[in-house]
C-alpha cells in the first residue's frame, strides 16, 4: 500500500481492535455448525481484521500479520482441505462426495463424524475466504490488477 491512512489514533484503534475481531472470527468459524455463523463469516471477519491493519498501518507492518506472499497458498490450502475432505469421504468411506459419515476417522460414531466433518470443512472455507479477500485487497492496492 503506497498511501496508508497513517495517523496515530487510527493505528492505535486498529491495533486494539484487530485481535478481538480476529478472535471473534475464530469463534464464529468454530461454532458455525451449531450457531449462526460459519466458515464464510468467520473468514470474512479474519480478513476484516487483517484489512483493518493494512489500511491503518500500511502493508509493511501488517504483512507481519499476514504476508502478501502467503495469501495465495493459503487460499489453495483452504480449497484443498474442502475438496480433500469430500474426496476422502467419497473414496475411503465409499459414500457420496462430502458425505461426512464416510470420513475414515477411527473410533468415532457417525454423529460425531458429521460434527467433525463440518468443522474441517468450515476451517477450509474460512481459510480460503480470508485469503481471497485479502488477496483482492493486496492486488488492488498494488495496482497489479491486470487480470
Amino acid at each position: 500500500m503506497k498511501r496508508s491512512f497513517e495517523s496515530p489514533i487510527t493505528l492505535l484503534g486498529a491495533r486494539a481492535l484487530a485481535p478481538f475481531i480476529m478472535m471473534f472470527g475464530l469463534y464464529v468459524i468454530f461454532h458455525g455448525h451449531y450457531s449462526p455463523g460459519g466458515g464464510f463469516q468467520g473468514g470474512a471477519l479474519l480478513a476484516a481484521s487483517v484489512l483493518l491493519m493494512r489500511v491503518a498501518s500500511g502493508s509493511k507492518t501488517s504483512s507481519l500479520i499476514l504476508s502478501n506472499a502467503v495469501t495465495t497458498p493459503m487460499g489453495v490450502v483452504g480449497v484443498l482441505i474442502y475438496f480433500g475432505t469430500g474426496l476422502l469421504a467419497m473414496f475411503l468411506g465409499g459414500s457420496n462426495f462430502l458425505d461426512y459419515e464416510g470420513l475414515p476417522i477411527p473410533g468415532m460414531s457417525p454423529f460425531y463424524l458429521r460434527y467433525t466433518g463440518i468443522l474441517i470443512i468450515e476451517v477450509g472455507v474460512g481459510l480460503a475466504v480470508m485469503a481471497a479477500l485479502v488477496l483482492i485487497y493486496d492486488k488492488m492496492a498494488d495496482g497489479e490488477v491486470s487480470q
Binding site: L133, I136, G143, Q147
Partner: peptide, 24 residues
C-alpha cells in the same frame, strides 16, 4: 443468501479490478 452475498462480493471484486484497469 449467504452464498448470494459471496457472489455479490466476488462480482464487486471483479468490477473493481475492471474499474482500475479502465482508469489506467
Amino acid at each position: 443468501m449467504l452464498t448470494a452475498i459471496v457472489v455479490g462480493v466476488a462480482t464487486q471484486g471483479v468490477a473493481f479490478g475492471l474499474l482500475v484497469n479502465i482508469w489506467n
